[in-house]
Design a binder for these strands. Structure first.
Lengths: 241, 241
DNA sequence: CGATTCACCGATAGTACTATCGGTGAAAAA
DNA sequence: TTTTTCACCGATAGTACTATCGGTGAATCG
């Protein structure tokens, strides 16, 4: 029991953090439909009406959740980039480029799931942000792949690169979900599979250009696959069909 | 205007179909949160209270949506399997094996999105079914891959096969979404990318066994990637983190 | 110390939804 | 034709949620 009496502002901040923590938990367990001021407040141990001391309305809570998720994601990306630079040896660096985003995802499984869900949910205020984050991740992978000799002259080259980046992200997400769900307990096996798939698109490089040795982009690592954040406001309906 | 007066039961059936059609549209536009008896009934052109003439409650509507989605999915799978058998030539059959599920998905984009969303949404009554359908699709791909010489003796072999199947599904989904969203307008380019990735895991086959010629499982086609259906009741919460 | 601030409380107005009920008229059965 | 059935209607009870308001006491300030 560390009972420093806490100043008023410290106490308020603590309560706010409790609210956000509770909100993440509910979001993860029940999805966005379950995220009511009643439940969040109760879970945080305050009266429902006191919710409005900390947030203007329900939307502002969601915005806060988004910002926090984005912050954590960027932190994980930074760290991943840093780590990838320090790995010795081509082959091991190749593996590391796939292992790092996997680990980054598995460090925040709830956050990851949240982003994955929001990305396909037009009712989620986090959808727009999740979609944009996914696009940003693809763009980063594209830059990495291009810097390793994949052709980018023609429009079709660039589109193909975009598709490959998309595929790498999807594969990484699938392996991460499998690991989180307990179906693939050994993360190294997941890395094996990602490496195996990677030899597929690397063939394209060998065929088109020739100045290359056999390992992949130094840091496809960079962003944990595109899943996590928000920063909503309005979810842009996307109409299909 | 074709005005056969319609018998009573025909009229009722028509109304029911209108309700289901409206429900799918709302689900696709607003997600599950927007699926209320008020909106569905209004969109179908009947009074809210009349909703209960056709469905016992809201859950029963969701169950019906699930059954219908499942039916369509199974139909698409059957057709895909049938088509794949009739393609001549190894290389073209290889491409077809990837093209068929892509086309099956793109024929029902709303359904596909719905399944993709439900799969990650614990609040969705369709989650359990979506997850099970995904697992069934993986199992099918695993059987196909095994029949083409991938080793399955050891537990780790089987797990690796499962992971590869998972990856193929994820890649197919990613390409399909990209196409539906308009980012990859040419479906043949998407097939190109899937084929490119496939050379990655096919290396494993060439290495381990040797009796093989260079084209992939005849029908990874089989199920359009694991996305579509429901058949809920209760969504089994999956707790992670 | 006395005055002020403010995080929190309970109560409640207002809104949106689910589900039920009795009534109605046209189709179907007799 | 007469009777019965039933798909649909409007009204409404009941529930769950959002957001506001005035009150309270402890921390903070003068």
């Amino acid at each position: 029991m560390t009972s420093t009496p806490l100043s008023r502002s410290e106490a308020k901040d603590l309560t706010r953090r409790r609210l956000i923590r509770a909100a993440f938990a509910i979001l993860d367990e029940e999805g966005e439909a379950g995220l009511t001021t009643v439940k969040v407040s109760k879970a945080a141990g305050i009266a429902q009406s006191s919710f409005y001391v900390h947030f203007k309305d329900r939307q502002e809570l969601l915005r806060a959740l988004g910002e926090q998720a984005g912050e954590r994601l960027r932190g994980a990306m930074r760290e991943a980039r840093h780590r990838a630079r320090e790995v010795p040896g081509d082959k091991e660096r190749h593996r590391e480029a796939f292992r790092i985003p996997l680990e980054a995802i598995c460090r925040h499984p709830a956050l990851f799931r949240l982003g994955l869900r929001a990305r396909h949910d037009p009712s989620s205020p986090l959808q727009e942000f999740a979609v944009e984050t996914a696009a940003a991740y693809r763009a980063h992978l594209v830059a990495d792949l291009a810097s390793f000799g994949f052709p980018t002259e023609r429009e079709s080259d660039r589109r193909r690169l975009e598709m490959i980046a998309d595929g790498i992200g999807a594969l990484t997400n699938a392996m991460a979900i499998g690991h989180i769900d307990g179906r693939y307990p050994d993360l190294e096996e997941a890395v094996d599979v990602l490496v195996a798939f990677s030899y597929g698109y690397l063939r394209l490089l060998r065929k088109d250009s020739s100045a290359w040795s056999g390992n992949p982009p130094s840091t496809p690592s960079d962003a944990p696959p595109a899943e996590v954040c928000p920063e909503p406001g309005e979810s842009s309906k996307k109409g299909n069909l």
